[in-house]
Design a protein around this nucleic acid. Structure first.
Lengths: 186, 186
DNA sequence: GTCTATAAGGTGATAGAC
DNA sequence: GTCTATCACCTTATAGAC
């Protein structure tokens, strides 16, 4: 199952270009030049420009779906710990995809493929906010949940000098500190 | 000094549309329809589409410049406290402009008008990270500095039910918690 | 599977009348 | 100050040859 090289090259080029210039800021022409083929060739492998984007983000969304499912089956305390680490991991591993999505937020978020992302993020937010659901706890959770991918967005710009492991550990630490400690776990 | 209504209407419409659909996602035609004039009228009042964007963001950038200057003249401890509150204030007050900038990050950040923004944010980051400059402190600062505007971005989508004052207080609280306490101030 | 050529329409910006 | 008409260009997508 490793035989459609051109298709993969297109996805790789699109990921790079979308991340650098944004989805709307990258034309099929740009991708074709980068790959070294014609625009028509792109549209032979994918139905449309949007289909390229969707294929590109599918693995990241699938893994968020997995994290979401994993959290559902755990008790509150364990879910909270895994939610932080899992979300940091996810954002770091798929940082290029996050750059793509962040690069064109208003347009992309309300696309069908991304609708479940919002719902799942909401669930993770509730887990991070804890049972109390107090406004301060919810807003702290939102800060963490918005800040982590925003950091992932900036990694390639001004995050040199940090290893991925150091970054990961520091993010988990800061996120844990930021969140309101739930009463029963301290 | 209150007599160029059309110009202001254009700016207001552009702010709304850019925030909703992104800078690249909004055409001069869209703005003209919203204002109720022709594209040519827009380009009589502004040199180009980019000039509309620049005029739109100028007040927010000017105020960041003021905050930046204010922090420069304070000692470390005071600067840290004011940096948090000042940045939260700024992001909440200019949330529409932040939505615009966040809506097209890759394209807008490296525009001349926004180049100083990056430098100033870096300064604020150093203040928030504290004198130690340890990696964990820096990354915590980056989390806060990326998370607050990212929250501001989402306010109009899913932040109903919170008053601005409650949101402001909770953000300052969470940000303060997230940051690594500097050794000499605790 | 990949190409060239082309369709069909949107883009920012300009010219010149009113 | 605002308009209509137009420019030159770029966009996604399709048709049909190879």
């Amino acid at each position: 199952m490793a035989r459609s090289s051109t298709r993969d090259e297109i996805l790789a080029a699109a990921a790079r270009l979308f991340a650098a210039a944004g989805y709307k800021g990258t034309s099929l022409h740009d991708i074709a030049v980068d790959v070294g083929c014609s625009k028509a060739a792109l549209l032979y492998h994918f139905d449309s420009k949007e289909a390229i984007l969707t294929s590109l983000c599918a693995p990241a969304i699938a893994e968020l779906e997995q994290l979401h499912e994993r959290l559902r089956t755990q008790d509150e305390r364990a879910a909270r710990i895994e939610a932080i680490a899992g979300f940091v991991d996810l954002c770091m591993r798929y940082r290029q995809e996050i750059q793509v999505i962040y690069g064109d937020l208003p347009g992309l978020l309300q696309q069908p493929a991304f609708q479940r992302v919002h719902a799942m993020t909401q669930t993770v937010c509730e887990i991070l906010a804890g049972a109390s659901g107090s406004p301060t706890a919810v807003i702290a959770a939102k800060l963490v949940l918005a800040g982590i991918p925003a950091i992932a967005f900036g990694i390639d710009q001004d995050m040199h000098g940090y290893t991925d492991e150091a970054l990961r550990a520091a993010l988990i630490e800061a996120a844990t500190r930021a969140l309101v400690p739930s009463p029963e776990t301290r």
